[in-house]
């Protein structure tokens, strides 16, 4: 039971981190016409954050099922 609470709190932390990375002024830092490896920076940033959030959630879930 305590394990389950810990898992949900970790997921809540992921949610808050996601809010910060996607909906705060931080995201506008990358919203510029800059390119990295020929790909627009904002595009790369959003997909990276997205992938990292998913990975974090998967990690949290898998660790809770051990």
């Amino acid at each position: 039971m305590r394990r389950a609470i810990l898992t949900s709190q970790r997921l809540l932390a992921v949610f808050l981190t996601g809010m910060l990375l996607l909906f705060s002024p931080i995201v506008s830092l990358f919203d510029r016409p800059l390119f990295w490896l020929g790909i627009p920076m904002i595009y790369l940033y959003l997909f990276s954050v997205w992938a990292i959030l998913i990975a974090a959630m998967a990690l949290i879930i898998s660790s809770s099922q051990k």
Binding site: T7, S8, L11, L12, V14, F15, G18, M19, L22, I42, Y43, L46, W50, L53, I54, M57
Partner: peptide
């Protein structure tokens, strides 16, 4: 441009709250 993304980013964040 990137305007198509919120439709998918929102559910991603929301999914973190599904356990509640």
């Amino acid at each position: 441009g990137i305007g198509f993304l919120p439709i998918y980013l929102g559910p991603t964040l929301g999914a973190a709250l599904w356990v509640f």
